[in-house]
Simulated assay, not measured.
Amino acid sequence: MKNSTRLAAVLTISIAFFCTEIVVGFRTKSLALIADAFHYLNDIVAYLIAFLASHLQEKGYKPSGFTYALHRAELVGGFFNGIFLLALALSIFLQSIERFIIIEFVKDPLLMLIVGCVGLSLNLISATIAQYGGHRHEHGHNHTSIHAMHNHTRLPPPLNPHGNLGVLAVFIHVLGDAVNNVGVIVGALVMWKTHSPARFYADPAVSLAISLIIFAGAIPLTLKTGRILLEASPIHLNLDSITEDLLASHSVLSIHDLHVWQLSQNVIVASFHVEVPVGTTLNQWEKIEGSLRECMAAYGVSHLTNQMFVPRNDRFGAL
């Protein structure tokens, strides 16, 4: 199943349940339902962004001037979604504190319970849809000779081949919503089955827990997408180790201006300058470059740009 198809299905379910939950939330005066509903609203925006980005990427849409097409569209959507989630979590958190000070009675805990159960069922269905259809790709590398001693042989696979931060963000949201629904159900049961005047504190308690859950999901998502957008080197890669492996290649004297960054969740890009001995022929350079590309491919680098240099008067000069 295509990413865009999965996202469209989850989006449809979310819109339908949001409308139901927001109406019931205001009718019962349940802050937990209202908080969960606005969380759904934020999810709907996130799903819509992810859907459009995934759809355009699958269609191969490449606007004029976008030489890398729309590889980062889902990252941008994931980053702004994380920012929206942080703002939403803060708002819910403050409203929950206010409800602890000025308690408000929930009118119909049974209706709240029913909505929570329906929401939990729909979220479990959405989580299944969001994760369905992943494909595993095994990338085997048969490294012999000098590559057998390289640092990359001790690394785990650098990237999830079918990883997608847009779909990942949706999956995280759906699971978070499911946990929220469990909280709504527990709070509704407490208010429905108990008779203590303090039972209505269960509603702001649940909404407070929802805000903390949103914080827990939004912070890592924002940091991860923000790091990629800032073109930082992938966390799992050590540039010193990469340089050491490249220098171990035959006829490589030095490596300069090494840059490694992620274009998207699945694409790592690198560039560097290579110093080779004076008199290196083009045929020899082709063998050197092939070895370097093989080494970088083992680190998960799919796009590599390098430039050959030879010493000239104790300075570097392009060949």
Rank of each mutant, 00 (worst) to 15 (best):
S64Q: 13
G290Y: 10
Y47F: 15
K224W: 00
D240N: 14
S291K: 11
A9V: 14
A205M: 09
R199Y: 08
H250W: 11
I97L: 11
L124Y: 08
N142W: 11
S211F: 05
V10K: 02
I114W: 03
H195P: 08
T222S: 11
V267L: 12
N142M: 12
I34Q: 04
Y132A: 15
G163T: 06
I125Y: 10
W192R: 09
Q307M: 08
G78Y: 00
H259L: 15
A298M: 12
L229H: 04
S121M: 12
V170M: 12
I15K: 01
H39F: 06
L33A: 06
K287N: 15
Y47V: 14
I13C: 03
M112D: 07
V24Q: 07
A46V: 12
T28W: 02
G290P: 11
G119D: 02
L239Q: 04
V278A: 15
L110N: 01
D177F: 09
F17D: 06
G183A: 00
G300S: 06
H236T: 14
L237D: 05
F309W: 11
V274W: 01
V276F: 05
I13A: 05
A188R: 03
L70V: 06
D203R: 04
G279E: 03
S64C: 10
E104V: 04
S145N: 14
N180C: 15
A188V: 03
Q307D: 07
V118S: 08
N42S: 15
E74D: 11
F200Y: 14
I103A: 14
F38R: 10
R136K: 13
N283T: 14
F66Y: 14
F66W: 13
